[in-house]
Structures are given as structure tokens and as C-alpha cells.
Design a protein around this nucleic acid. Structure first.
Length: 636
RNA sequence: GCCGUUGUGGCUCAGGGGUAGAGCAGCUCACUCGUAAUGAGCAGGUCGUCGGUUCGAUUCCGACCAACGGCUCCA
């Protein structure tokens, strides 16, 4: 019998008998590894443990410790779920079932949508099949044979997928009587699915196209062991506890009302104060960076929207009204008035760049099913700016915005990632303009030295964009900041400036937001801090509370001193037990509580108690005010 | 917009073909109290909206509205 030699990741090589598989290799290295091997990577390609090795191949063993291993576990678990569904509902047609970031899903075409009880049955069946330890084996078939096979089984979707494939042969995976078209690799057998849970069910269009039939998508998650699964489920619970819709109500920040209308938040005093703090911060930061604050109206004539292209491309998202037989569009974006401000003067190249900043409130008619708390609303305020500059200034302006984003994200304590989105199908403007704009963004991204991704066809209709996704403390990503190039609007509005030679030139425009929508940003902020806002953002920074009625006069003095110093302070002089007042302030997540008892009255001090239960040293009320002011200035 | 689930007092939830209950919050009274809930009493709902079935609907049926979980779309 001849012998082959394979190379391992550490550079060493191993001799194996011809026909040896990945599993054999793992066994040759050690019994522990053989037990942990769920797949292999041969010459950079993932394969099953049953895959035979070839001479001189570079081989790595994949275990459940790696991201690739987890991916395979999830993918195989989705197959296990499909097997269970076919066993319980033979009429169900299988479609696709990939692993995703948080687990996996499988889409089924069924006459009757699954009920919660069905899901329980499916999960139970999955356990049963996993326990049976059914081997999962790969088969290779010609395309035509595969089509016949799936046609005979009535799996029309699989037939469609295979027919679209550009290959002569396809691979199948068989586990018991269940067969699925799949590239693989998969786990050695079903018993390797050890820790999984079906999490939810939802409708999903076949191939993601809303004109197609709606399928039933069953979501689940899987991990290499129970402990990690439990940790994930606990994280879901934590996310639920932090849900900004729940905290928004509990902290009395905002609400929604049927009578007001879907997607329109109403801001209660504490929420409105939080907004104001953020908005004041933004004005200050923009003025620091040479932006000009501007303000435009809420509705503008329909003809203006026609001229800008919004009427053509964005009409279905806009609200329209009529006043004195004149049509108006409620603004879904702030750019138009900024354009008109630019046009109000003859501009020189010496004026540029011009940076117009507006905390602009916009209305967008979002489809009913997409609304979600503050994260997706129909009326929101953007920290919007339009930069008008010469083509030569474009690069440095974009870099300036990226650095602005970096500063602000640092202050709020968010990590972030950047993505470049290119020209979509529905768009306006010439190919040359698109290319120029895309290159400008690409150049700035490369210069930033940070990693970024490219989303083909994801740009706005008027230009390419950089999207910035911040990452919260639960590692979730949120789209907030965006930087969008626009060579089209200056053209449509015939914006010009006079260059050094006295010639009329066309400026370039950049739309950009830093926080994006104040609403969405606050939603993210609430969840990120679980409502425990840092002192500089807390709508109520301190609560003065008395032990008994007798301390009221002094407590009132403390309250007035702090109010006078600009501290956001409230008082609780109710005739309640101290424990009760502390509990309430604690639930309201107020950072500092100032308990005023006889001790404080006698020494004319306050003893600040932080919401984590720790105390500061007793101090005079004005020292406490200074302390809060200093903390706030440092964005603590 | 599409699929599924849900809709009972401010909040969390029970109930169910014969015109509704609990806890918390609210109000009143007593207690004057030192770091996460003092006690007692009172009040509060045309059971999401509009139709239909029925002697009778909050309960059954239908439509609409809204919320929730997704899909598609997006700041």
C-alpha cells in the first residue's frame, strides 16, 4: 500500500496510508483531536471529515473552537431541523437553510404556517434525531440526475436552485432518509448537534423578493456546547431588559400613541431634555469645526422636489399637502433649503468650503411593517450638514468628516465600522460623476487607515456613500453616521462659484450626518447604557431627598443652590421612608442621590450617593455642583 | 406593503356568550422614619375601532387600526 504525506498548519508533515481521510489524520495526531474534529480544511477548502486526503495537501483540522467550526455546527443543525420538519410534515417543501451570525434558519414552503406548538414538536424531533446519531454523508451527482432526484421528491425549489447552478455536478448530503442539496461541509453525524434551540418563526420571501411566494422561516441557534448556548440566551434576555421601548416608558422619556399616529414619537420632559443636551453638544461641536448653523422650512413647493429628483425617486416616501392651491412636499431630507441658501449669493472660490449644518426634522412615510420604536420612525431629526466645496477640496472634506465621526464616537464611547456603498439600479447622474464620487470616498477610506467593506449597489439614488455602523456594548451594529457624495444636485440647481480666473465652476456637494437620526441614536444610547446614562447626558443628574420633614428648609436650599449652578436636579421631599425614595431614584437611574438628614443639616453639607450604592465624601452643595460641572465637561 | 402572533384600567397580567378582576402606580388618612417597597381605605375600564351572528358579544366571525417577531426597504 502506498503512502501519502500531508502538511499541517504548524509546518510539520505526516505520512498516512493512501485513502486516509481527515478523520484518520486527526486520529493519527491524537485521540482527543479525533473526537473534536468536525471538518477539515484541505488546501484552503473546507471538507467533511470523511474526505480522503491527497498527497502533499495542506491540511488543518477544524474543531468546534473555531468560527468555521461553529458555522458548520449551525449549518448542520439547520439540516437537522429540515429533517425533523420533513419527518413531521412530509408535505413541506424545503428551500434554503444557511447559518447566520446568530445561528441559522431554514425556509419551508408549507400550506399551513407553523404554530408555536409545531415548533416545540420540531425541536423535540430534532433532539430525537440527534440522539439517533445518524451519519451525515456527502454524495456527488450529475446535475441532471440531481434534478430528477429532487423532482421525484417533489422538491420544486431545489430543482429551481440546481437548474440555476452553473456546474456539471452537484453535491448532496444524506442523513437517514433526508437528502438535501448542499455544498457542505457538514458534521460527521447528527449527534454532533449538541446545543440548539428554535428561537422564532417569521414569513420570508422566496429568494428575498417581495413578488415571490412567502415561505415560513424558522430561526434557531446552535453552539458547540450547552454553556455557550445558555450564555447566548442570557444575552438575548439582557437585550430584552435593555430594550429602549421598555426603558423609554419606565424612565418616562417618550411614548407613542395611536391617536398621534404610528411612527411619531412624543417626547416627555426627561426625553426632550436628553435630546436637548445632545443637540446642544452637536451645535457646539459643529461650530468648533467651522460649520454654519442654518434653518429651513418644514414644507417646500412640490416643483422644488421635482427639480431635485426627489419627486421622481423618493415620492412614495414623502407626504404632500396643498396650501392655497399650491402643492407642497413635507421635507424628507434637508438638502433643498441648504441648496437655496447657497444660491442666495454669488459664491467665490474663496468662500468654499461652505458647511451648512441643521438639526433638521424630516418626515418619511416608512412602510407600516418596518416601524420599530425610536429606531425606525416616520418623523426624526437629523444632525445634517451639506458641504459645498471645489472638486479639489473634496478629499480633505471627506477626511474631515471621518475624523469628526471618530471624535464624536469616542466621546460617546462607541466602536464603529465603515462601509462603502456603490451605485444602485435606481439612480440619477452620469457614469463619470459616479466614478469620480466613488473614488473620492474610496480614497478617503483608504487614507483613514481603517478597515472597511464594500456594499455593491447599496448607494443612495443621487450618489455613493460611506455608512458608519457603530457597535454597542452587546456587540450589535447600528447604522447612524453616513457620508454621501452628490454631483447631481449642484447640477440640477445650477450651483456655481467663481474661480480664481473669474470662470463659473460647479461645486461638489457632500451630505453627511454624524449621529444620523437623533431618535435612532437615543434609542441605541438607551440600550447601550441600559438607561444608566453618564452624568453629562442624564436628564436628572441628582435627586435631593429628605429623611423627614424637619430637614426640608435646608434641603430646599441645597436644591436651589444646585439649580442655580445649572445642575439638572430634582427634589423628593415627600413624606415617605428613605428606602422608598432611594428605590424610586434608583429605578429612575438617577446618577447621584443627595440624602439630607440631620447630619447634613448640622454640618451644612451633602453626602452624594452614586447609583451603584457608593458614597462620596460629605461636601458643600456648591462643591458638589462644581464636581458635576467638571464631570459633565469631561463627558463622564 | 407581505407573513405570523397579540390588543382587558397609567403599567404588568388573570378571566371569559349573561354587560369585568389582581398586583403596582394614583388619591385620602395614619406613621416623621438614615440608604432598593410602612399600613389602611378610596377611586379608576363603553375589554383597540367598526360591522356581523345571537334574546344577549368584551368573549364567536369579518374588516380596519396598532403593537410585537421577521421579510422587503432604510437614518
Amino acid at each position: 500500500m502506498s503512502v501519502i504525506a500531508v502538511k499541517l498548519p504548524d509546518g510539520s508533515s505526516r505520512s498516512l496510508p493512501e485513502g486516509a481521510t481527515v478523520r484518520d489524520l486527526a486520529a493519527a495526531i491524537g485521540a482527543g483531536l479525533a473526537k473534536a474534529a468536525i471538518a477539515g480544511k484541505v488546501n484552503g477548502e473546507l471538507v467533511d471529515v470523511y474526505a480522503p486526503l491527497t498527497d502533499a495537501a495542506e491540511v488543518a483540522i477544524i474543531t468546534d473552537k473555531s468560527a468555521e467550526g461553529l458555522d458548520i455546527i449551525r449549518h448542520s443543525t439547520s439540516h437537522l431541523m429540515a429533517q425533523a420538519v420533513k419527518a413531521l410534515f412530509p408535505a413541506a417543501k424545503v428551500t434554503i437553510g444557511p447559518s447566520i451570525e446568530t445561528g441559522f434558519y431554514y425556509d419551508f414552503d408549507v400550506e399551513q404556517p407553523f404554530s408555536p406548538e409545531d415548533l416545540e414538536k420540531i425541536e423535540e424531533k430534532m433532539r430525537e434525531l440527534a440522539k439517533a446519531d445518524i451519519p451525515i454523508r456527502r454524495e456527488q451527482l450529475s446535475k441532471d440526475d440531481a434534478i430528477v432526484l429532487f423532482k421525484d421528491m417533489g422538491e420544486d425549489y431545489k430543482v429551481e436552485i440546481i437548474s440555476d447552478l452553473d456546474a456539471d455536478t452537484v453535491s448532496l448530503y444524506r442523513q437517514g432518509d433526508f437528502v438535501d442539496l448542499c455544498r457542505g461541509p457538514h458534521l460527521p453525524s447528527t449527534s454532533w448537534c449538541k446545543a440548539f434551540k428554535i428561537t422564532s418563526i417569521a414569513g420570508a420571501y422566496w429568494r428575498g423578493n417581495e413578488n415571490n411566494r412567502m415561505l415560513q422561516r424558522v430561526y434557531g441557534t446552535a453552539f458547540s456546547d450547552k454553556k455557550e448556548l445558555d450564555a447566548y440566551l442570557e444575552r438575548l434576555e439582557e437585550a430584552k431588559r435593555r430594550d429602549h421601548r421598555k426603558l423609554g416608558r419606565e424612565l418616562d422619556l417618550f411614548s407613542f400613541s395611536d391617536e398621534v399616529g404610528a411612527g411619531f414619537a412624543i417626547w416627555h420632559p426627561k426625553g426632550a431634555l436628553l435630546r436637548t443636551i445632545i443637540e446642544d453638544f452637536e451645535r457646539k461641536e459643529h461650530l468648533k469645526r467651522d460649520y454654519d448653523i442654518v434653518v429651513g422650512p418644514q414644507i417646500l413647493k412640490t416643483e422644488l422636489w421635482q427639480r431635485s429628483g426627489h419627486y421622481e425617486n423618493y415620492r412614495e416616501n414623502m407626504y404632500f399637502t396643498e396650501v392655497d392651491e399650491q402643492g407642497f412636499g413635507i421635507k424628507p431630507m434637508n438638502c433643498l433649503s441648504h441648496m437655496m441658501i447657497y444660491k442666495s449669493h454669488l459664491r467665490s472660490y474663496r468662500d468654499l468650503p461652505l458647511r451648512f449644518f441643521e438639526l433638521g426634522t424630516v418626515h418619511r412615510h416608512e412602510r407600516a411593517g418596518v416601524l420599530h420604536g425610536l429606531l425606525r420612525v416616520r418623523c426624526f431629526t437629523q444632525d445634517d450638514a451639506h458641504i459645498l466645496c471645489t472638486p479639489e477640496q473634496l478629499d480633505s472634506e471627506i477626511k474631515g468628516v471621518i475624523s469628526f465621526v471618530n471624535d464624536v464616537m469616542g466621546i460617546f464611547g462607541f466602536q464603529y465600522e465603515m462601509e462603502l456603498s456603490t451605485r444602485p439600479d435606481k439612480s440619477i447622474g452620469s457614469d463619470e460623476d459616479w466614478e469620480r464620487a466613488t473614488n473620492a470616498l474610496l480614497g478617503a477610506l483608504k487614507d483613514s487607515g481603517r478597515e472597511f467593506e464594500i456594499n455593491e449597489g447599496d448607494g443612495a439614488f443621487y450618489g455613493p456613500k460611506i455608512d458608519i455602523k457603530l457597535r454597542d456594548c452587546l456587540d450589535r451594529r447600528w447604522q447612524c453616521a453616513t457620508i454621501q457624495c452628490d454631483f447631481t444636485l449642484p447640477e440640477r440647481f445650477d450651483l456655481t462659484y467663481v474661480d480664481a480666473n473669474g470662470e463659473r465652476k460647479r461645486p461638489v456637494m457632500v451630505h453627511r450626518v454624524i449621529l444620523g437620526s437623533i431618535e435612532r441614536f437615543i434609542g441605541v444610547l438607551i440600550e447601550h447604557f441600559a438607561g444608566n446614562f453618564p452624568v453629562w447626558l442624564s436628564p436628572v443628574q441628582a435627586m435631593v431627598m429628605t429623611v423627614t420633614d424637619s430637614q426640608q428648609p435646608y434641603a430646599q436650599q441645597v436644591y436651589e443652590t444646585l439649580r442655580g449652578a445649572g445642575i439638572r436636579v430634582q427634589k423628593d421631599f415627600r413624606n415617605e421612608k428613605l428606602g422608598f425614595k432611594i428605590r424610586e431614584a434608583q429605578l429612575q437611574k438617577v446618577p447621584y442621590m443627595l440624602v439630607i438628614g440631620d447630619r447634613e443639616v448640622e454640618t451644612a453639607t451633602v453626602t452624594p450617593r452614586f447609583r451603584d450604592g457608593s458614597n462620596l465624601e460629605p461636601m458643600k452643595a456648591d462643591s458638589f455642583a462644581e464636581f458635576i460641572i467638571k464631570e459633565s465637561a469631561n463627558h463622564k
